[in-house]
C-alpha cells in the first residue's frame, strides 16, 4: 500500500492549501498589523522611534545650544496664542534670537532645546543599560537553568542576594562611589537589572528543558552545548526581549531619579531628571515651566515603552 492512499479522503486533506495560506501570512510582520489596529501600541512604537531618533540627532536639531546660557533668565514660555505667529516667523525669517518655546531656566538655558537634547543622555543610558543586562542576564540565566552544578547554584544565590538589595539605593551607591558619569550609570543600571533577566531566562529555560524538542535534539545526536545554545536559547529569550522594553522605561525613570536626588549626571548636561530637579527649587515661586516640560517628556517616553512591552507580552501569551 502506498502512503498516498493513507491520507486521501481524510478531513485533514479536504483543503490542502488552507495551511499553506497560514504560512504565507506569517511573512507579514505582525507588528505592522498591531500598529494599525491598536492605538496604544501605535503610540508606544512612535515614542520608541522618536526617542531613538532624538538620542542620535536631538542635540543637533536643538535650535539653541542646550548648554549655552542665553541672557534671558527665567523666561516663561510664550502664551499658546502666540505660537502660530512665532512658528511662522521661525519658518520664514532667519531669526537671530529664536523663541524659547518652553521658556528658560534660572541660568538662562533654553528648556525646549534641553528637552529634546536630553535623550542623548537619558536614552543612551537606558538603552545600553538594558542591553547589557539583557545579554549578561540571558547568558547567565541559560547556564543557570540548563546546567545544574555548584557554580550555577552560587550564581543563583548571588542573584537572589542582589534582588534583596534596594534597587534605587544600590544604583546610588554604585554611581556615587564610582564617579557620576554616563558610563558609570550604564554600568550601575546594567548591574541592578541583570538579576531580573537571569531569573526570567532561567525560569523559561527550566520549562523549555522539559519540552520534547530538547529531548529530540539530543536524540538526533547533538552535543549538549549545541542543544543549549541552538535549541533552548532561541526559545527562551522571548520573555526577556519583552521585559527589555519595560526595563528601558524603568532605566529612564531611574536615571532621572538619580539626577533628581543629586546622584546622577552633573549639570549642565541636558538630562530630564536634572532639569526637573533644578526647576523644583523655583516651582513654589510659580516658575512651573522648568520642571513641567522635561517631566512630560519622561512621562510619555516611559509610558510609550510600557505600552510596547505590554502589547508584545499580550501577543506572546
Amino acid at each position: 500500500m502506498t502512503t498516498d492512499s493513507t491520507s486521501s479522503g481524510t478531513p485533514e486533506d479536504i483543503n490542502p492549501h488552507l495551511e499553506l495560506d497560514i504560512t504565507k501570512k506569517r511573512r507579514q510582520i505582525d507588528i505592522v498589523k498591531k500598529f494599525r489596529e491598536e492605538k496604544l501600541f501605535a503610540f508606544g512604537i512612535i515614542v520608541v522611534f522618536l526617542s531613538i531618533f532624538l538620542a542620535f540627532f536631538g542635540p543637533s536639531i536643538a535650535p539653541i545650544d542646550p548648554t549655552l546660557a542665553t541672557g534671558d533668565v527665567s523666561f516663561p514660555p510664550p502664551p499658546l496664542a502666540d505660537w502660530p505667529g512665532l512658528l511662522w516667523q521661525v519658518m520664514t525669517t532667519d531669526m537671530e534670537n529664536p523663541p524659547h518655546w518652553f521658556g528658560t531656566d534660572s541660568s538662562g538655558l533654553d528648556i525646549f532645546s534641553r528637552t529634546i537634547a536630553a535623550p542623548r543622555t537619558d536614552m543612551s543610558i537606558a538603552l545600553l543599560a538594558a542591553l547589557v543586562s539583557l545579554v549578561v542576564g540571558t547568558v547567565l540565566g541559560l547556564l543557570a537553568g540548563y546546567y545544574k552544578n555548584i557554580w550555577t547554584e552560587i550564581l543563583m544565590r548571588t542573584s537572589d542576594l542582589m534582588q534583596a538589595f534596594p534597587v534605587f539605593i544600590t544604583a546610588m551607591i554604585l554611581v556615587a562611589l564610582s564617579g557620576r558619569n554616563t558610563a558609570n550609570i550604564i554600568f550601575a543600571l546594567g548591574l541592578v537589572y541583570t538579576p531580573i533577566f537571569i531569573r526570567l531566562t532561567r525560569a523559561e529555560v527550566l520549562s523549555q528543558k522539559t519540552r520534547g524538542y530538547v529531548e529530540a535534539a539530543r536524540a538526533v545526536g547533538n552535543r549538549e552545548w549545541v542543544v543549549a545554545f541552538r535549541h533552548v536559547l532561541p526559545n527562551s529569550v522571548v520573555p526577556s526581549l519583552i521585559q527589555t522594553s519595560t526595563t528601558i522605561g524603568f532605566a529612564i525613570l531611574l536615571t532621572a531619579g538619580l539626577s533628581f536626588v543629586g546622584a546622577g549626571v552633573r549639570p549642565p548636561t541636558p538630562e530630564w531628571g536634572l532639569m526637573i530637579a533644578q526647576g523644583s527649587n523655583n516651582i513654589v515661586h510659580g516658575e512651573w515651566w522648568e520642571s513641567v516640560f522635561p517631566g512630560i517628556a519622561i512621562s510619555l517616553t516611559v509610558f510609550g515603552y510600557a505600552t510596547v512591552g505590554h502589547g508584545l507580552e499580550e501577543d506572546y501569551r
Binding site: G212, Y213, E215, A219, V220
Partner: peptide
C-alpha cells in the same frame, strides 16, 4: 544515534517551535 532513533508522544512538543 544515526542507527537508533525515537519518535515522541506529543508531535508539536517534539519539534522546535522556531
Amino acid at each position: 544515534r544515526a542507527n537508533m532513533q525515537i519518535v515522541f508522544q506529543d508531535p508539536l512538543d517534539s519539534l522546535n517551535p522556531r
